[in-house]
Amino acid sequence: MTQALAFPVPNALGNIDQYVQAVNRYPLLTEEQEQALAHRLSDENDLDAARQLVLSHLRLVVSIARNYLGYGLPHADLIQEGNIGLMKAVKRFDPDRGVRLVSFAMHWIKAEIHEYILKNWRLVKIATTKAQRKLFFNLRSLRPSTATLSPEDVRGIAAKLNVKPEEVIEMETRFSGGDVAIDRGSDDDDERMSPIDWLADESAEPVEVLATAQNERLADEGLKGALASLDERSRAIVQRRWLVEDNAATLHELAAEYGVSAERIRQIEAKAMQKMKLLLSA
Rank of each mutant, 00 (worst) to 15 (best):
E269Y: 03
I265Q: 00
V207K: 15
N45Y: 05
V62K: 07
N83T: 13
A159I: 04
E216Y: 06
A228P: 02
V124K: 14
L60F: 00
W108D: 13
T146N: 14
D77Q: 12
T148M: 07
K91N: 10
L53M: 08
V124F: 08
K119P: 02
R59S: 15
L218Y: 12
L135E: 01
A50G: 11
Q132S: 11
L41N: 03
K275N: 09
K164G: 01
E170S: 04
Q239L: 12
G72M: 10
V238A: 02
D43M: 05
M1W: 10
L47W: 01
L41T: 02
L279Y: 05
L142E: 03
I126E: 12
G178W: 05
S229K: 13
P8V: 08
G178T: 06
S150E: 09
E257A: 12
R217K: 15
S194E: 04
S176W: 02
L118D: 05
Q52W: 07
V154A: 09
E166R: 08
N24Y: 08
A211R: 15
I64T: 06
R184G: 15
K110L: 00
D190L: 10
H57W: 00
L230K: 07
I196E: 09
A76S: 14
R25E: 09
A255C: 09
Q132P: 03
V9R: 09
R92S: 13
R133E: 14
Y68G: 07
D183Y: 05
T250I: 03
L29Y: 00
Q33M: 04
R66P: 00
F175W: 12
N162H: 10
T212C: 15
G85S: 04
N247A: 14
R233I: 15
A272N: 03
Q52T: 03
A219C: 11
A248Y: 00
R192A: 10
